[in-house]
Write a protein that binds this DNA or RNA. Sequence first.
DNA 1: TTGTAAGCGTTATCAC
DNA 2: GTGATAACGCTTACAA
Lengths: 374, 374
Amino acid sequence: MTKTKLTVEHCATEVKTVIARENRRVTSYDVALVAGVSQSAVSRCFKPGASVSKATYALVMKAAALLDYIPNAAARSLITRRSNMVALIITNQANLYYPELLAELSQQFTAQGKRLLLFTLQREADVDRVLADVWQFQVDGVVAAARLSAAHIAEFERRRMPLVLFNRKLRDASVNTVTCDHLESGRMLASRLAAAGHRQFGIIAGSEDYSVASERQRGACERIAELGLPTPVVVPGAYDYRSGALGLKAIIAQLGGVPDAVICGSDVMAIGCLDCARHELGLDVPGQLSVAGFDAVEPSNWISYNLTTLRQPMPKMAAAAADLLCARIDHHETDTERRVFNAQFIEGATARLTPAGAPPALAATGLRLPVAIM
Amino acid sequence: MTKTKLTVEHCATEVKTVIARENRRVTSYDVALVAGVSQSAVSRCFKPGASVSKATYALVMKAAALLDYIPNAAARSLITRRSNMVALIITNQANLYYPELLAELSQQFTAQGKRLLLFTLQREADVDRVLADVWQFQVDGVVAAARLSAAHIAEFERRRMPLVLFNRKLRDASVNTVTCDHLESGRMLASRLAAAGHRQFGIIAGSEDYSVASERQRGACERIAELGLPTPVVVPGAYDYRSGALGLKAIIAQLGGVPDAVICGSDVMAIGCLDCARHELGLDVPGQLSVAGFDAVEPSNWISYNLTTLRQPMPKMAAAAADLLCARIDHHETDTERRVFNAQFIEGATARLTPAGAPPALAATGLRLPVAIM
DNA sequence: TTGTAAGCGTTATCAC
DNA sequence: GTGATAACGCTTACAA
């Protein structure tokens, strides 16, 4: 004959049915009602480091759990002016060839409590259309792995939107950038190949508007010229597998013969070049021709290729991008900085790295070389 | 000696300085002030088919442009209950091996005015941690390319969160799913290989918790059993390149010899297996051993591999996922649906597809086979 | 520590 | 077609 005791549980289920009937979301008011505290008390419980008594906290958390309450980020961001979202502007191409980049960035930003909102580009020219969307979504910052014009940069500044350029350079602008020294990479590769006695180079460049490949080309050409070697034959490429084969054939046609070495603007092109040389043209690589690429993508490491290439320290670069952006967002850093990383040379086995006739160094024989068993 | 005429431009710059001084965002009120209309008129101008006169529209748009005004999506989503964001829950692995998936999904959703908010998982087990975040961000729906438990699914229903599972199945749950028929793919591959006379199979499976690879394995085993062929040797793999070589060696050890064919749960493993067979073990593929994979990833098509494999129609699958999700979000569709696609067989040149001794079919010689020139 | 009340910047409803 | 006004769900002074 006891009068029904109004437990928190009872109250919660009752409130839930009301919410369901009114077809609305669970709010902090609902939780407050169930917990028997004020709405602001509920709010404080969900703010890390706010002053709440243990008892209140427990009460609120119990009610929240009962109601499946989760703070509404949209409402929060309206007042705090923080969305905890970072836009990533990236070309499809970039994601296709550097899938680790996405994983690394996502992980780094997640560690800082931020999530990536994705803006992919079919072509670099789509930036304009995409930027309008970026502003709408109230992201806290932007990582751009795409070509931005000076006007774009100006708009970022006007809107005070933190920005980090990833592997893109812009002259005459003070922007945070994270890059790998592609010019130096190109120089280094040319130096190594020249030291091994290669004289006539072919270069398969990237498309003109992609600075990474063109810087590598510029670096290689610079160094080749400095060394007084014959002018290399430079042909354009589209950064893909097919470009490697087409490029090699174009180089051979233009040169009237096989060059000593072909430097490709990317690994995928190098692999295309390599396959064409070996399987279509029947050339011995690196016996008759050396082939080298850039990036050290996963397949470059596969036994069939074992490509001579240079590795960009992607995890570190991603971490640097996250650091720079978070410094601006969370610590109101205003100075801009350029973080430049150096590529790591991967010897591989598709380029002769010692002068012809010299005994092959240990590396040239390769740890991963075919070893017949039985 | 004319009194300063208060043009819209003058007014705009004045308002801008005030905004800058007060360090706040440009709002629709500011635009209304400059345009000389009410705030609600401004709001209407930014709503696609609202009733506004041409004159007002022009006035408002001019003022908006002058002030760099863009509607605040957080505020909008608070009242409309639409964030125009869709969460993509994806394992790092999935993105690493299927980078096109991301591009396709992003494109499909962008076409529907929605953007992807990225939630990457180091391991499939991280889902729990990630889901709490998903709820916060008020996304309109979720595409999950990760393993969800029945409890997870239940939470989606409780929260009425639209969900599409991508390439994951769940027994006994009515959920929207988009899959490729991996079981049938496995069966088809086994059939084709058996028809060509292969009798003893080795299978390199995927890790247990990844349904795609295990279904393929199940399909292949089923079919092999139906045909009365010897029980295949099944070894586990981790979906990566290294697993291919390890798997092949394990199969050979377990069998005491080389099998007729090895079916690998993924192309990357198949490529690892292939490289090991050819370069480490000195086997002739497909002369002494047939190797086949699944997925038709880009490298599988490279001349060095030209892998026998099955292609998932990724673009169509991505489109289907977007369709299903948008139907629930925008058209309040409540029925769930399973869209199952069939894989396309890619003959390649790493598996013998005609009975031994029979004259090779045209396909077996391959259009992309090495052709020495000169 | 807690509650009250004022925003944040929209969209939606309703008179006019 | 246009303008007041009330939500939306939260954070944050400020007062108690």
